[in-house]
Amino acid sequence: MTALLDSIGYSGWVLHTLIWMPILGIGLVLWADEQRAKYVAFWWSAVVLILSLGLWWAFDPTVGGIQMESATPWIKSWGVSYALGIDGISLFMVMLTTFSASISILASFNYIQNRQRPFYALMLMLEAGVVGVFLATDLFLFYVFFELTLVPMYFIVGIWGGARRIYAAIKFFLYTALGSLLMLVGILYLVYRAKTLLGAPTFAYAELLQVPLSGTEQLWLFGAFALAFSIKIPVFPLHTWLPDAHVEAPTPGSVILAAVL
């Protein structure tokens, strides 16, 4: 299998494909008629799942760090790049995401009866965003994908949820948006410190790791990131948005919430 993957240059394009295929699928779902949208979404997500399985053989567990890296300058004046990579943790999370997305869409066939095209388009957008979170090695790109996951889930809960769906969706949005802002502050401070030392801003994860920080700076940055992720996970006592979101979300959305979001 490894030889086959090498022969088609799998490592060079698969990470980009796992993000952009669901995004391309959004257009196909919206173009399809109401009754066929679910089949388009499912088979498209199934192809993404199959492609992601190759990561198991393409990833070398004997080599530490990030593999299959690629970086393309995006906003040069800010030091932002479209940079992707995968490590041993994100390997499993990406495969879990593609699997969860496929079974969630399949489980929606008899559950979602109205506004099917926008629902399945949002599910594919959610898949792309979550995969992007696990693959981004540029913190600006990571933040974009992190925020992207918020938008489709907000609408999935708010439109196709239960009786208190609006309340649950707004609560979910406010909690996670607040956490995201805390993380953004931490990211921007890291970039500021990097610019001070390097003479140019950078959002590259590997370069930001090399920025020397005092104990106080590390403590404040840890607090910002820890609070952001504690809200997202969520961790007690920052978890109160989750029971409402789980109860009110449609079953497919609840599956994604429980599995990877």
Results as ranks from 00 to 15, higher is better:
102 S>H: 02
138 D>V: 02
95 M>Q: 15
135 L>C: 05
94 V>Q: 11
94 V>L: 10
93 M>V: 11
117 R>C: 07
97 T>E: 03
113 Q>R: 05
104 S>L: 09
136 A>K: 06
86 I>F: 15
106 L>R: 09
108 S>F: 07
124 L>E: 11
85 G>M: 05
121 A>K: 11
123 M>K: 03
112 I>Q: 00
102 S>G: 06
101 A>D: 08
99 F>I: 13
122 L>P: 02
116 Q>F: 01
139 L>F: 14
98 T>K: 02
105 I>M: 02
106 L>K: 13
141 L>M: 15
127 E>P: 10
107 A>N: 08
129 G>P: 01
100 S>D: 04
124 L>H: 14
121 A>I: 09
123 M>F: 06
127 E>M: 14
88 G>P: 06
95 M>R: 13
129 G>C: 08
131 V>C: 04
105 I>W: 00
108 S>M: 10
136 A>V: 07
96 L>Y: 10
96 L>C: 13
111 Y>K: 08
96 L>H: 12
134 F>K: 01
115 R>Q: 15
117 R>W: 00
91 L>S: 04
121 A>M: 14
96 L>V: 14
89 I>P: 05
132 G>W: 04
115 R>Y: 13
136 A>R: 06
125 M>D: 09
130 V>K: 03
109 F>T: 04
105 I>A: 02
116 Q>S: 11
103 I>W: 09
94 V>T: 07
131 V>K: 13
107 A>Y: 13
133 V>L: 02
113 Q>Y: 00
88 G>Q: 13
91 L>A: 09
125 M>N: 12
102 S>K: 00
134 F>Y: 12
117 R>A: 03
94 V>D: 06
131 V>E: 06
108 S>V: 06
95 M>Y: 06
116 Q>E: 13
98 T>F: 03
138 D>F: 11
124 L>S: 07
128 A>T: 08
115 R>D: 13
135 L>G: 03
126 L>K: 05
97 T>M: 14
126 L>T: 02
125 M>I: 09
91 L>W: 07
123 M>Q: 12
134 F>W: 08
100 S>F: 14
87 D>I: 10
117 R>M: 03
85 G>A: 04
136 A>H: 09
100 S>L: 14
92 F>C: 07
139 L>C: 02
94 V>M: 13
137 T>A: 10
118 P>N: 14
92 F>K: 12
123 M>H: 08
136 A>T: 10
95 M>V: 14
118 P>V: 10
88 G>L: 09
119 F>H: 09
109 F>A: 04
85 G>P: 04
86 I>R: 12
139 L>H: 02
98 T>G: 12
110 N>Y: 10
139 L>V: 03
101 A>L: 08
137 T>D: 14
94 V>C: 11
132 G>H: 04
124 L>Y: 08
119 F>P: 03
125 M>G: 15
121 A>T: 11
114 N>I: 02
